[in-house]
Amino acid sequence: MPTAVDSMSIWALVEDASVLVQIVMLILVAASLASWFVIVQRSRLLASARRSLQRFEAQFRAEGNLDRLFAQPTEQRNPAEQVCRVGFSEYQQLSQHATTESAAVMEGTQRAMMIAIAREEKRLEKNLPFLATVGSVSPYIGLFGTVWGIMNSFIGLSQAQQATLAAVAPGIAEALIATAIGLFAAIPAVIAYNRFTAGSEDIIAGYYTVADELATQLHRRLHTPGQR
């Protein structure tokens, strides 16, 4: 363990830390890197989903003819369009039978869209529990490494002939690095989790809105003579 103040660089402290503290640091660094990978991936996914939702909402509200709207080629991976297309397809199949009651047609249409929205919700929230885990657990893992390192420092101090601050400072400093790394891993993960949760809820609310708008138009169409 270094005792000179000049040797107390971050890297030197990490190298001189005990094996257990080094393992704790390695776990936290790996968790941080994994969480940043998830953050980048989720950011791109949410941005793409938000853009596709806005694009389809504008197209849906500008096009007055549903048959013409859904007769167009499917845009590649537009979740909002897929939700409405599934509902419209279910509506067409159910409404072809004259004996099917209007309530049953609308119920089947809405159920099909709810299932499609549930799939999209699951896709948007994928890996968010991992970020929540990193954000909640990392500080405690870092604290464990800190407690272990400080404990070893005081054990070494008790065996020294002369107890000085210079003798124990490097051990305490290297132990505190574990807490710092734990916070470095936890803070971005917590911020990203809250941001992505709010963002996914906003997008899902947009899916429900456009699905309700489609259901309203289909309900009106269903009760218009000759339009079924």
Score class of each variant (00 low, 15 high):
Arg111Asp: 11
Leu128Asn: 07
Glu121Gly: 15
Gln82Gly: 02
Gly199Ile: 03
Ala17Ser: 15
Arg42Glu: 06
Ser89Met: 10
Glu201Val: 02
Ala62Gln: 15
Gln76Arg: 14
Arg55Gly: 08
Ala17Pro: 03
Pro225Phe: 04
Arg123His: 13
Leu176Ala: 00
Thr146Val: 01
Ala189Tyr: 03
Gly135Trp: 01
Asn65Gln: 12
Gly149Lys: 10
Ser153Cys: 02
Glu15Pro: 00
Ala4Tyr: 07
Leu165Cys: 03
Arg77Gly: 08
Asn194Arg: 13
Ser102Asp: 15
Ser9Phe: 09
Ala118Pro: 03
Val134Lys: 04
Val19Leu: 15
Leu214Pro: 11
Leu143Trp: 01
His97Tyr: 11
Asn127Ile: 07
Leu13Gly: 04
Pro225Gly: 08
Ala215Ile: 01
Ala189Asp: 08
Ser158Pro: 07
Ala160Tyr: 09
Gln161Ile: 07
Val147Lys: 03
Met106Val: 00
Ser32Asn: 08
Ile150Gly: 08
Phe70Pro: 08
Thr109Trp: 06
Gln41Leu: 12
Ala47Glu: 10
Thr100Glu: 11
Thr216Asn: 14
Leu222Tyr: 07
Gln76Tyr: 06
Thr209Leu: 14
Ile172Gly: 02
Val40Glu: 10
Ile155Gly: 05
Asn78Leu: 02
Arg123Cys: 02
Phe154Trp: 11
Glu57Phe: 07
Ala192Cys: 07
Tyr91His: 10
Gln227Arg: 13
Ser102Leu: 07
Ser95Thr: 14
Asp67Arg: 12
Ser200Thr: 13
Ala180Glu: 04
Leu69Asp: 10
Ala175Glu: 01
Gln159Lys: 15
Lys122Phe: 12
Leu222Gln: 09
Ser158Asp: 14
Leu176Gly: 00
Thr74Ala: 15
Leu218Met: 05
Gly149Val: 07
Ile187Ala: 00
Thr146Trp: 06
Val147Glu: 05
Ala116Met: 05
Val83Cys: 03
Pro129Lys: 09
Phe60Gly: 09
Arg44Tyr: 10
Ile181Gln: 00
Asp212Arg: 14
Val19Ala: 14
Ala189Gly: 04
Ser153Asn: 03
Arg195Tyr: 15
Glu121Arg: 15
Arg85Glu: 02
Ala166Met: 09
Ala166Pro: 05
Gln227Tyr: 11
Leu143Asn: 01
Gln96Asn: 11
Ser18Asn: 13
Asn78Ser: 12
Ile10Val: 15
Arg123Val: 11
Arg77Ser: 12
Val29Met: 10
Met8Val: 01
Leu53Pro: 09
Leu165Arg: 06
Ala175His: 05
Ile10Asp: 01
Ser153Asp: 01
Lys122Asn: 15
Leu183Asn: 06
Leu128Met: 12
Asn127Met: 13
Gln59Lys: 14
Leu218Gly: 04
Ala104Pro: 03
Arg42Ile: 05
Val83Arg: 03
Asp212Gln: 12
Thr216Val: 10
Gln227Lys: 12
Glu201Asn: 15
Ala104Lys: 12
Gly108Ala: 04
Thr146Asn: 00
Ser48Thr: 11
Val29Ser: 01
Phe88Gln: 07
Glu81Val: 00
Arg220Val: 07
Gln92Asn: 13
Phe70Arg: 09
Ala160Asp: 11
Gln72Phe: 01
Ser7Leu: 13
Ala80Gly: 06
Pro73Gly: 02
Val14Pro: 04
Gln22Tyr: 03
